[in-house]
Amino acid sequence: MMAADDMPVPYFEIAADYRIRAVSAAASAIFPPVPDWRELLDAGSRDKAASLVAPSHSGMKVELNLRAAGRPAALFDVYQSWSGDGTGHLVCIGRQHRFDAASEQLRLLRETLERDGEAGGGRREPARRPEPIARPEERDVRAALETIGELVELLRPSLTELHKADFADSIQAHIRLALEAAAPEG
């Protein structure tokens, strides 16, 4: 059988009490060195691992957040198999990049939905709006525009240093126009 160190995936060989006996080079490259495998678990994953990473679940894949690559919680698929003598074999495949990509996609989708003013996702109107309605959309638009204006002002010193203060003025002018279009306040 292949030596643990040579396994081309992040691999841990652990004893029945979760003490780490051997790790692959691929695992040492991303996980901090700890004596007990459970020390890698994020607080929110401890109970899950305690009940599901165990000989009685040999063969089951478990999604867990582990301390890895400098992050306090990165997502992993943990594959486990347990030998008759109580030795555990854990392969931990990183999923964080896919997770981050999915988060980003969702963020963009949400922005698109918000931009189109279609919070429901469908083409139809929200099923009902009780009267009277205080035109919150208008208030929201105004608040968002004011926030943008303020953030631009915060960037003004840096823009001035880069001789790009004109951009700030131009953005502010557009915001003023949009605020006027968004109906007078009050």
Binding site: E63, L75, R95, F99, A102, S103, L106, L109, R110, L113, E114, A119, G120, G121, P126, R128, R129, P130, P132, I133, A134, P136, E137
Partner: peptide, 24 residues
């Protein structure tokens, strides 16, 4: 977590929708 992601996206939309529907 893929399921959690989807559910979160929907929950987000529902918060916005409800906020628009309720009297202010």
């Amino acid at each position: 977590v893929a399921d959690e992601h989807l559910a979160s996206g929907l929950c987000d939309i529902l918060i916005t929708r409800y906020g628009m529907a309720v009297n202010q």
